[in-house]
């Protein structure tokens, strides 16, 4: 079957006076690793819960694989979800947690055991099948939740902040593992995250949400290079927002600026003084107060600059990206 795996049309959800999801239209392509990115309270989790069927929309509809999901309860949707808290059943073993979905379909016996074993192998938890969730580490629990959500081969896997509960070190490795698993299984993943770095590094397509609306959809590279609005430019990575003639705005990434002691031979050049330096290892981020009163961020891999030093900032004519609003 062709066409998008998910089609969202004019979807709206209100909680009392708060509009959590505000008439969203969105297509999600088959086989995508789709990230919904936004700050807390932007409506991304509500949108995910609308896909899973835990919330009933106040307007619009969701089609999954061409089928209208309006009025379809969660247990009948071809969708599985990995919860932020993992929501593992504490009174069941790891194997019983993973088998739960198959047993609800009336599956049992050798075939279920085989598929559970396979799923546990896939997440490297075969030796932990008989343990209870409370006896596992955070990373192991996350993998149980993943295996449990994948066992029924859903058309769509929803992941609510899949890495948020892991410590930083584990997060990096798990990121790659999720991407690998998604590519291997060829399923569509939709994940919600507030971490733009996570979304950028994992997603094939990302959608930036703000105040219940989707403000931009695109490949991470496109969204980063060509942000549509001041909000997106500021939310994804760092950006200097400059006023351009005609009341328009331009986003200028710090790494597009050349920092030098002498005046550079570039179309744009301004003199200033280094106010702050943040050393980040591979690069340093300098906050420079320009002589005309503006403050800009510039990235440099040259460690020779000092606080209080007089410097020049320069950038090419096409370095900035004009914004729509």
């Amino acid at each position: 079957m062709s066409g998008p795996i998910v089609r969202i049309e004019g979807l709206a959800k209100r909680f009392g006076a708060v509009t959590a999801v505000d008439r969203v239209d969105l297509d999600i392509e088959r086989g995508a690793l789709f990230a919904l990115l936004g700050g807390s309270g932007c409506g991304k989790t509500t949108l995910l819960r609308l896909l899973a069927g835990f919330e009933t929309p106040d307007g619009g509809r969701v089609l999954i694989d061409g089928q209208d999901m309006t009025g379809v309860p969660p247990h009948l949707r071809p969708v599985n979800m990995m919860f932020q808290s993992y929501a593992l059943f504490p009174h069941m073993s790891v194997a019983d947690n993973v088998a739960y979905g198959l047993r609800r379909e009336g599956g049992g016996g050798a075939e279920t055991d085989r598929r559970v074993g396979e799923a546990l192998d896939q997440v490297r938890l075969a030796d932990f099948a008989k343990r209870r969730p409370a006896q596992l580490s955070g990373g192991q629990r996350q993998r149980v939740a993943l295996a449990r959500a994948l066992i029924k081969r859903p058309k769509l896997l929803l992941l609510d902040e899949p890495l948020a509960a892991l410590d930083r070190k584990l997060r990096e490795g798990t990121r790659f593992e999720l991407v690998r698993l998604q590519a291997e299984l060829g399923l569509t993943f939709v994940m919600v995250t507030h971490d733009q770095e996570e979304a950028m590094s994992m997603a094939s397509t990302l959608a930036v949400m703000d105040a219940g609306r989707i403000v931009q959809v695109g490949a991470p590279h496109d969204v980063y290079e060509r942000p549509a609005s001041r909000f997106v430019a500021g939310f994804i990575g760092l950006a200097n927002i400059l006023e351009a003639p005609g009341g328009r705005w331009v986003a200028l990434r710090p790494e597009k600026i050349v920092l030098s002691a002498a005046r550079p031979d570039l179309p744009h050049a301004s003199a200033g003084k280094v106010v702050d330096i943040a050393y980040e290892g591979a690069r340093s981020l300098c906050r420079v107060a320009l002589d005309d009163g503006r403050t800009m961020l510039a990235a440099t891999s040259d460690g020779a600059f000092r606080r209080g030093q007089d410097v020049w900032l320069g950038w090419a004519a096409d370095a900035g990206h004009p914004l729509d609003e």
Binding site: A52, G53, F54, P73, P74, H75, L76, V79, N80, M81, F83, S85, A87, L88, F89, Y100, G101, R104, E105, R148, A149, K152
Partner: peptide
């Protein structure tokens, strides 16, 4: 935890099955 019941429903449990198993 209500999310346990949501997880059960998500994995295909009807409300009564979710009550019996969770």
């Amino acid at each position: 935890d209500v999310s346990l019941l949501e997880a059960a429903a998500d994995l295909g449990a009807r409300p009564f099955a979710a009550f019996l198993t969770i």
